[in-house]
């Protein structure tokens, strides 16, 4: 008997075309949602989705409650519009991770839950473009996935490749599906949202950016130069000594300091340690990288730092991280904890 997807499935998998058709057929329009009182609840749910995505302790478990099918699908769509308005790369990425991980969780439940259906899992996975028993992927398709996966085992250079096909192992399928979906969700984001619409949802946006600020403060806390990763410390030292550091290095310092919550004026101060300090040029660069131009940049990962020859003075903490930001966050957390423990 052929398995059919039910409306209840659309609440779990709101990215499906069928789910979008489902709400469209019920006459929901953006205008209605933004003006009606029931729409307010949906908008709130959309904000909640994004705020949940910002939390680093994101976990899906059996306590997750699905609300009405319409509300799940519509809040999913509104959340996507909101993040396009916000145009902050970190927030966007976090929402994409959140949504794909949510789908991964429900796919898993199709196997473990008594009301689940493995056949549905297969159908959804095929819509995502990965078969449950996929054994290899073409290099191009693989690279798109691997680029977003951190572990060294995913690097193309560490894979078995034969005639343009990359071998994958059964235990890797789940991660691959999640990553593939994340990319699909990202690609299908609306390219632009009319400014007029964005300004109408400004109060919602304000709530999200405020939550994001709080989140940054929470995860990085006060700025402590002593816990900076060696690569960033070396770059700052190079600036101070007047060495001519490459653009990639300036970019890394600025994006790093910006992400841990340093104010542009303080970042400019770091560069002012250079003997050939040029105020207006530095201000321009710093403001550009920290988002004045509309795009916020995230600092380069360890892999990128290596490629640019900026990964230097590696120490024990580096072994456990793939990103200078994780180095800083982890080391700060652990060492501060240590110092708080009474001797």
């Amino acid at each position: 008997m052929a398995v059919r997807l039910e409306p209840e499935d659309f609440a779990k998998y709101p990215f499906l075309e069928e789910a979008q058709d489902f709400v469209r057929a019920r006459g929901y329009t953006l205008e209605k949602i933004l003006t009606s009182s029931s729409g307010k609840i949906i908008a709130t749910k959309a904000v909640d989705r994004i705020i949940a995505a910002l939390s680093s302790k994101l976990r899906f478990d059996d306590t997750i409650k699905l609300e009405s099918v319409e509300k799940e699908i519509l809040s999913y769509s509104i959340a996507r519009i909101l993040i396009v308005c916000i145009n902050n790369r970190t927030i966007t990425e976090k929402l994409m991770h959140y949504e794909s991980d949510r789908v991964r969780y429900f796919l898993h439940r199709e196997l473990t839950d008594e009301r689940g259906d493995p056949e549905k899992k297969r159908i959804i996975m095929e819509k995502i473009g990965i078969a449950p028993d996929q054994e290899a992927l073409p290099v191009n398709a693989y690279v798109e996935l691997a680029a977003g996966l951190r572990d060294d085992a995913w690097r193309l250079v560490n894979r078995d490749i034969r005639n343009g096909m990359v071998r994958i192992h059964p235990e890797e399928i789940e991660s691959i599906v999640r990553e593939k979906l994340r990319i699909i969700l990202q690609k299908k984001l609306p390219r632009e949202v009319p400014e007029e619409l964005c300004s109408r949802v400004q109060p919602l946006i304000d709530r999200i950016t405020k939550a994001n600020q709080e989140h940054i403060l929470e995860s990085y806390g006060d700025i402590e130069e002593g816990y900076f990763p060696p690569c960033i410390t070396a770059l700052i030292a190079a600036v101070a000594s007047g060495a001519n550091i490459p653009h990639t290095g300036r970019f890394a310092i600025t994006a790093f300091l910006h992400t841990i919550g340093m104010h542009p004026a303080q970042i400019v101060e770091v560069f002012s340690r250079a003997p050939d300090f040029d105020l207006s040029r530095t201000v321009y660069q710093v403001e550009h990288i920290s988002g004045r131009s509309g795009t916020e940049y995230t600092p380069p990962s360890c892999a990128t730092m290596r490629t640019y020859g900026l990964c230097v003075n590696r120490d024990g903490w580096c072994e456990h991280v793939h990103h200078p930001l994780s180095y800083y966050r982890d080391r700060k957390k652990k060492e501060q904890k240590k110092s708080e423990t009474p001797a």
């Binding site: 690279v143 691997a146 680029a147 977003g148 060294d152 690097r155 193309l156 250079v157 560490n158 490629t307």
Partner: peptide
């Protein structure tokens, strides 16, 4: 439409950058 990350996978492959001895 690949970004730098995707292209880096290819260039690291041809240059042999990031080889993990345990995996090899």
């Amino acid at each position: 439409d690949w970004g730098s990350h995707e292209r880096r996978e290819l260039v690291d492959y041809v240059c042999g950058i990031g080889l993990d001895p345990a995996i090899m």
